[in-house]
Simulated assay, not measured.
Amino acid sequence: MLTGLQIAIIGGDARQLEVIRKLADLDAKISLIGFEQLDFAYSGVVKEKFKDVNFAEMDCVILPITGTNSEGKVELIFSNEEVILTEDVLSETPDYFTIYSGISNSYLDTLAKKMNKRLVKLFERDDVAIYNSIPTVEGTIMMAIQHTEFTIHGSTVMVLGLGRVGMSLARVFDHLGANVKVGARKSEHLARITEMGLTPFHLDQIDQEVKDIDICINTIPHLIVNASVIQKMPTHTLILDIASKPGGTDFRYAEKRGIKALLAPSLPGIVAPKSAGKILGNVLAQLIEEDVLKRKE
């Protein structure tokens, strides 16, 4: 139980609704910031303006999956309010105050370190990333079907990256009957791709490997599908970039060449917000109880 804890939840998408329900059920007191356009009535949950929140009384804050931008601004979906996480805000908080975010950036990392606050990046946890790969894969399949004129079965699908999401994608598209090739850099990943019965290639050879593909799925948050790579793709190729913004694709050149390229980060929040929210809610409940509650006591 989270009885006695005060939690601030800032903005986010529909996944946050399940997080709110989970934490409220555990008897936490929750201040919602950036949700005024959303009808949500729940015991122990109040809507507040960011400027009115007393952060001295807060035990932790839960940011949207995307965290902040490079200036500390938090993107809000259900509000027009401006929310910027600053040193002044964190200076009011107790020593054990913890920041929870899906991902981070240099601004948020630096801010937390300077203010000596614990920063937990949820998507760097294996359990969250693996559970989250389930709705991500389903969403990717949905987009592949919607934006192609051929079946996945028998098509040639390239997956870039064999991380926790990349592995799930490669396995499922293989089970759907696609000819799957996977690009990676680490020798152990190339070995794993071979063990899975798929076609491995080193990312240094991507230019040669794209010449016969029908679908390219990128999970790497760096520019990997550049103009040189796109120039060698068949014109019917569909690029699905599911890496975090801004993705790893040269979208301008893809459009110039007539290749459909779609950036689709945060797929779980789009295709299965309820399931994705339950994953985050369960993990956050455990973390807050283990970390914040014990440190507060």
Rank of each mutant, 00 (worst) to 15 (best):
M1E: 13
M1G: 10
I9D: 03
I10V: 12
G12I: 04
L17S: 09
L17R: 09
I20Q: 03
I20H: 04
I20V: 13
R21A: 11
L26H: 14
A28V: 07
F35S: 07
D52Y: 11
N54E: 15
M58K: 15
E71Y: 11
S79C: 12
E87V: 07
T98I: 06
S101K: 02
I103E: 06
D109E: 13
A112Q: 13
M115R: 11
L119T: 11
L122Q: 14
E124S: 14
R125Q: 11
I130Y: 10
N132K: 04
P135C: 11
G139P: 08
G139F: 04
I141S: 08
I145M: 15
T151W: 06
M158D: 06
R171Y: 03
D174P: 01
K181N: 04
L190D: 09
A191H: 15
G197S: 09
P200L: 04
P200V: 03
I206N: 08
E209G: 08
V210K: 05
I215H: 04
T219E: 01
V225P: 10
V225F: 05
L240S: 01
S244R: 02
K245N: 13
G247K: 02
T249C: 07
D250G: 03
R252Y: 11
E255V: 07
E255Q: 12
K260N: 12
A264E: 02
G269K: 00
P273N: 05
L280N: 01
A285R: 09
E289G: 07
D291K: 00
K294M: 14
